[in-house]
Amino acid sequence: MNREVLGARIIQKKLIRYRIGLTYPEITDLENKEAEDTINQLIQEEIYRMIVEQGYEEDYTIEIWGDYEVKVNDKDLLSILLNIHSYSKGAAHGLKAVKALNIDLKRGKLYELKDLFLQNNNYIDKINEIVKEEIVTKDIPLLVEFETIDKRQDFYLTKEGITIFFQIYEYTPYAYGIPEFKISYDILTEMIDIKSPINAFLKE
């Protein structure tokens, strides 16, 4: 693999079990094989965790299917979304859960939101402000009032910015789907840690 690309080669794999059918990514051809194994283990563990959270081990009549999306795969940064759908017989509708994994391809490190920003900076307050403004301007229906994100907040990365998202029913009704709030890196530049992986995209 040409490491000038600074991305990972991704193979689509399938998980087929009783009432389960989904695709998921497998990373290959990394120079650091230990990191490669760690990343693939992270992906598989997260998929199984999501399946269990849908209630599969308690109710084998539940049907589960899913796929994934690659949001960025460049400059030694991989950001992927794992989408898991489930349906229980007799339910009014199915459910969807989404998990983002933001990974350092060199070390196999899983990034949390706090890893991207200066710890002495008010990045949480700034993101909260942006989310609250968008809730108002887009008239997003809420089940409960939005107060704040936290350091373990769900998010994914692109070359242009960070997207904060919430699960169905976390703040919004089922019909609204997964609420996403896209924030350009330019808005957060002064808050980004020098060691943050997104610095590579700011310099383009």
Rank of each mutant, 00 (worst) to 15 (best):
D186K: 15
E190Y: 02
E31A: 12
E63V: 15
E4T: 11
I192P: 15
L15G: 05
I124L: 05
I20F: 04
T158W: 04
D29C: 09
L42Q: 04
L110Y: 00
L81S: 10
W65A: 02
Y24K: 01
A175G: 12
I124P: 05
D125G: 11
H93C: 08
L157N: 00
D139A: 12
A100L: 02
L113I: 10
L142P: 00
I10P: 10
D59L: 09
I192L: 05
E204I: 12
E4H: 15
Y24W: 00
D74R: 11
K132F: 03
E31R: 10
L116D: 05
E180I: 05
Y111E: 03
E45Q: 13
A100H: 02
T28A: 07
Y176F: 10
E145Y: 02
Q119V: 07
D115A: 06
I187G: 14
T158K: 12
L101Y: 01
L78T: 08
I164F: 01
I187R: 07
H93Q: 05
E190N: 02
Y156A: 06
K75R: 05
L77C: 06
L95S: 14
L30T: 08
A8E: 02
L30V: 01
T158Y: 02
T189N: 15
Y24F: 05
N102R: 08
V52A: 14
T148R: 11
K33F: 00
P141R: 11
Q153C: 02
D125A: 10
Y111G: 06
L78Q: 02
Y87T: 04
I62L: 10
I187V: 09
D139Q: 15
D67S: 08
D74I: 09
L77F: 00
R3T: 14
V136T: 13
I16P: 11
I20P: 01
L95N: 11
R49M: 07
I149M: 12
E147H: 11
Y87Q: 07
Y18Q: 11
D29V: 00
L113K: 06
F181Q: 02
T61D: 13
A175L: 10
V70D: 01
I51P: 13
I47M: 02
S88E: 10
L30K: 08
G161S: 00
L30G: 12
T137M: 14
K75M: 07
M50L: 10
M50P: 04
K132S: 09
Y169L: 08
L30P: 07
V72H: 03
D125N: 15
T189V: 12
V98I: 07
N128M: 00
Y18F: 11
P179A: 02
E57M: 13
E53Q: 07
D125H: 14
Y156P: 06
I16E: 09
